[in-house]
């Protein structure tokens, strides 16, 4: 992130933090103190959340004042900025990584065998990042083969180590 954008991010975060602190305080105040069970009121589950909520509110206020002094309230979000973000190659790479990993970890795992899911993830990860646009598929068969080899070897060996050495029962 650009240094000049930092006060803006801080300004937004401080507001989020204060709202968060207040909601923690509200939530904590609704917690029972089990006084009906003849126990010490200081053992109530809301004691520490109340303390933390107050601290969030305090830290949020300090940050708010600081970011206002640094003119962080000028957010300057325009259509151009957003479009530029979407066109940036950095964003693409980030989204591919995040997307692949989320699909693998949250959707594939548990629905198919660990080896298959992992192999698929490894293979598509390597291929997506090494694939050269505009070059024929046939010319890149070495890339594909290496990706396949890596996928099979690593998913197999990880499965082995954890299944037999560390006694992890895999999902799926």
């Amino acid at each position: 992130m650009k240094e000049s954008n930092m006060p803006k991010a801080d300004f937004l975060m401080s507001i989020v933090l204060m709202i968060f602190g207040i909601s923690v305080l509200i939530n904590a105040s609704g917690m029972p103190n089990f006084a009906d069970q003849n126990v010490s009121p200081y053992s109530a589950p809301g004691v520490v959340p109340t303390l933390l909520g107050a601290i969030f509110l305090l830290l949020g206020m300090i940050m708010l004042i600081r970011s206002i002094l640094r003119k962080g309230y000028r957010l300057g979000i325009t259509r151009n900025n957003i479009a530029a973000w979407f066109k940036d190659q950095t964003t693409h790479r980030f989204l591919i990584t995040l997307g692949l990993s989320v699909v693998y970890a949250l959707i594939l795992l548990g629905r198919m065998h660990f080896l298959l899911a992992t192999g698929l993830y490894m293979f598509s990860f390597v291929v997506l990042f090494e694939y050269k646009r505009g070059v024929g598929l046939f010319a890149q068969k070495k890339t594909l083969l290496m990706a396949l080899l890596l996928a099979v070897l690593t998913s197999g060996s990880i499965y082995w180590v954890f299944r037999y050495l560390f006694l992890v029962n895999f999902p799926g």
Partner: peptide, 12 residues
């Protein structure tokens, strides 16, 4: 790593 794995397999 495959060698280590082989050994650990035999062990575990």
């Amino acid at each position: 790593s495959v060698l280590i794995l082989g050994a650990s397999m035999a062990f575990a």
